[in-house]
Design a protein around this nucleic acid. Structure first.
Lengths: 206, 206
DNA sequence: ATACTTACGAGTAACTTACGAGTAAAATAA
DNA sequence: TTATTTTACTCGTAAGTTACTCGTAAGTAT
């Protein structure tokens, strides 16, 4: 296990770790290439060989093993990590604000999935859903929902978080707190479902 | 025991498990073929042989046994597990209600620690802390706290969740929502800190 | 007979690896 | 200061390997 890794090497290693964690299998050279923005498989191969020589990477299936890259956990490493990307900030009535460099946030391992993502709530515009400023929500990316699920929806460009209730007249969005009004989606509205809510959490650490 | 199964192998294994569970017997090769969309028994056979070699599948009736596939329940675990015990139910103004058989709940791996535990919130007595009915809280067991931390405290046998602020006059407990009153702990009160709040979450699945 | 399992040969797409060459920046020698 | 070498990457492609697929025929237990 050699000296310090260059930022590029480290980024490469990080990507493999995250991809494997989220997708359940390690990425192919081609997937690495396109995600990391390389123009050639040769480049990917150079990284793999370099990291293998330095002892940070191994092939689990011997030579020519497909999707067989794993990182060597140097014992100093923290416990298993389970993280999802923090894609943006959400506030009711405003567009979702995407983050350029999504950081990764810890979540329960059972929530790991390629289609899951995290948003942080900005402001108290969602107290009717009992979600507060600074809270995080985990959602599953999908454009369809079942009745009763809480959806991350965009109506005319404005984000909202409500319980999805389709009926014969159209679509209704119910707040969790019955004191607030039910929204009825007009057929002329631009209505899109962004995902369904799975989990929300708040961190009290500093 | 080769761990890295490809998604297809995994799906195959999953199907056998589910089928056996539902039907009480394992599927025939032909049933596997049609359900999983293969065009040939050879393909099914290839999967069985491969999974057997990797140690994930066994034939319970020896060679040529009919409907004799079973999974080796070695490390049936899906992903990494990260769980803490759900010790009890908490409601402001009442004693903490301990659970006899604490079940385990999923948490982010970064929260794993022997001194950490989970409580579920009962009722809406903690909305002043922006914690709602059914929410879960993760706390660290300790009897001391630093100023500014949110503590799980017991005053005269009644549970409360507040921000701990000691000063020259004694101990004050501030709610997160400033509209609610500050509690000043009387020296004659039986005041104990049960733990400090680390994390709270809510699950929207089911 | 019937209901299955097993063996074998062959094909294809997905994937890894080897090789040869190039560049810009930093380190070293002149 | 300039010339040179080394370092840390980058590119394109051909060739090799594996993962998975197919079809069919022969085997085996009730």
């Amino acid at each position: 296990m050699n000296k310090a890794l260059s930022p590029k090497l480290k980024k490469f290693l990080d990507f493999i770790q995250r991809f494997t964690l989220v997708n359940g299998q390690s990425p192919s050279y081609e997937e690495i290439m396109s995600t990391l923005g390389f123009g050639s498989l040769g480049t990917v191969n150079w990284y793999v060989k370099t990291l293998e020589e330095k002892g940070h990477l191994s092939r689990i299936k011997g030579p020519n093993g497909k999707r067989a890259l794993i990182l060597n956990q140097n014992e100093t490493q923290t416990a298993t990590i389970a993280r999802l990307p923090l894609l943006g900030l959400i506030a009711a009535g405003e567009p979702i604000e995407a983050l350029e460099n999504p950081e990764m946030v810890d979540v329960p391992p059972s929530l790991l999935h390629p289609d899951h993502y995290v948003l942080q709530v900005k402001g108290n515009s969602m107290i009717e859903e009992q979600i507060h400023d600074g809270d995080f929500i985990v959602a599953k990316k999908t454009s369809i929902a079942r009745s009763g699920q809480i959806v991350v929806a965009i109506i005319n460009g404005e984000a909202t978080l409500k319980c999805y209730v389709p009926n014969s007249h159209g679509i209704e969005l119910h707040p969790r707190n019955p004191k607030f009004p039910i929204i009825t989606v007009d057929p002329t509205d631009d209505f899109r479902i962004n995902g369904v809510l799975l989990y929300s959490f708040r961190n009290y650490l500093n």
